[in-house]
Amino acid sequence: MTGWRHWLRPGDSVVVVLGALVCVWSALAMWRGGAPDSALIRAGGTLVAEVALTRAQMVEVEGPLGTTRIEIAPGRARVASDPGPRQYCVRQGWLERAGAVAICAPNEVSLMLTGRGADYDSLNY
């Protein structure tokens, strides 16, 4: 095997390494199953915001009971606070997979993550 190294010129090694990097990069880019790209925020059934999951920010949505605050972070999102009585959507915590949904039914607000390779095509309730 060592004999074959004799046939590599200095730049060839660089090309081999670059090629290997392309492999790693494409595997990371193509095979990140279930990683979400953006969050869809709905109020009363209509889409009020589509936010990319790139930087941290707060989104406030008005519903019949008051304001639902949605926290966006890189790669994940959650309902930070909600005026609903049982707080199911808040207690769901961070949503981290494409297709994950948090529904604050009393305040008619929902948060859904979208991305390639989502676990579900659609959810109905």
Binding site: W7, L8, R9, G11, D12, V15, V16
Partner: peptide, 18 residues
């Protein structure tokens, strides 16, 4: 046309394969 001293058939081969 890459410099021959640095890049040989291996470089050509990998670039062509890509």
């Amino acid at each position: 046309h890459l410099p021959q001293r640095w890049f040989g058939p291996v470089s050509h081969s990998i670039l062509a394969a890509f």
